[in-house]
């Protein structure tokens, strides 16, 4: 059984921030939803409530950066780039302020529908000069995200998981270093965030069906070192499949495609994610199935690449965790 960790961000942020007095905690009326309510109550001096006003929060953070502080902005991922995009560019990205954007509920991990689902954030952030992008895929990565983000000399956007999260790894995020989870020789599977757990669900069924998988987990999306990736692509015979909790345009699939094209790698690539569509509200498991982001979709992607069926059935994929939308571990207000 996978160990489930409850609200790892809450304690990780608290211990990191209290040890670093120049870290300030900014919130835009989603304090408990971003697991910083305990921090607010225990460390009011280091907590700045900015209300539901994200544009102001972004430029305000730029100003705090000028004063030598390293503000950690907390909100749902969407509200950290869609509305305050201009402020993000002018007040944060251009002048390279050390502003840490903690974007919760990435992609379809929220039931809140289109307005709450950050499905194109990676594409947007990748296109912004000076921006660093990190993404968490398990409890250990959430526990180490504050230190990793704060090591960046410039702005950084993080996709942060919340609530009850599986522990998949036992070492913290090392910025710029991908995790090698399997070293097979047929197909290279590249995942990040919650997609990694999906790939792990499919692993034993794939092994049994005789497909040899090489699996990489990405936590640093930008900047991205090509060398290691190219080596891995060179080590598989059939091709590459990317699965991400994001639209297929502009995310990790695109990143891999660019690297392959730039280097003249003549191998097949299957990009899985939301296919040029907005999503809607629903449970995470349902949305992952509906939009083809789950283990079954990965198996189908692999079959497409192989040009043959693996014979793997839905039942063979290790059981999914079902998080009730209203479960107790979930913070208030979505």
């Amino acid at each position: 059984m996978v160990e489930m960790v409850s609200r790892p961000y809450a304690s990780a942020f608290e211990s990191y921030a209290t040890a670093n007095p120049d870290v300030l905690c900014l919130s835009a009326d989603l304090t408990s939803s971003c697991e910083i309510d305990g921090f607010r109550d225990r460390h009011p001096d280091q907590f700045i409530s900015l209300g539901m006003a994200e544009q102001n929060m972004m430029s305000f953070a730029g100003g705090l950066g000028l004063a030598g502080y390293r503000p950690f902005l907390h909100s749902f991922g969407v509200f950290l780039y869609r509305r305050p995009y201009d402020q993000l560019i002018a007040s944060v990205a251009y002048p390279r302020r050390k502003v840490r954007l903690m974007g919760f509920l990435p992609g379809i991990t929220t039931p809140g529908g289109m307005t709450h689902q950050s499905i194109e954030d990676v594409a947007v952030m990748r296109s912004i000069p000076n921006m660093t992008i990190l993404e968490t895929g398990d409890a250990t990565e959430v526990e180490s995200i504050c230190e990793a983000a704060d090591s960046i000399d410039g702005p950084v956007y993080c996709r942060v998981l919340r609530g009850s999260i599986p522990r998949l790894f036992d070492t913290p995020i090392k910025v710029g270093q991908m995790r090698e989870l399997a070293l097979g020789e047929d197909i290279l599977v590249i995942t990040s965030g919650i997609a990694t757990e999906e790939a792990l669900r499919a692993r034993s069924a794939l092994e049994k069906s005789g497909v040899s998988i090489r699996h990489l987990h990405i936590n640093t999306i930008k900047p991205f070192g090509e060398e290691a990736l190219l080596d891995h692509i060179g080590s598989v015979s059939k091709g590459v499949v990317v699965l991400e909790n994001h639209v297929t345009e502009g995310g990790i699939g695109s990143l891999v495609a660019e690297i392959m094209a730039d280097n003249g790698v003549g191998k097949k690539l299957v990009r899985l994610g939301l296919r040029d569509t907005f999503a809607h509200g629903g449970s995470r498991a349902y949305l992952m199935g509906h939009y083809g982001l789950d283990a079954a979709a990965l198996v189908a992607g692999i079959e497409k690449l192989l040009g043959s069926k693996t014979g793997i059935t839905e039942e063979q994929l290790t059981s999914t965790r079902i998080d009730a939308v209203h479960s107790a571990v979930k913070a208030e207000a979505l």
Partner: peptide
């Protein structure tokens, strides 16, 4: 799941 009667009105 699959309903149009969403929690956050769409």
């Amino acid at each position: 799941d699959g309903s149009s009667v969403e929690m956050i009105g769409a």
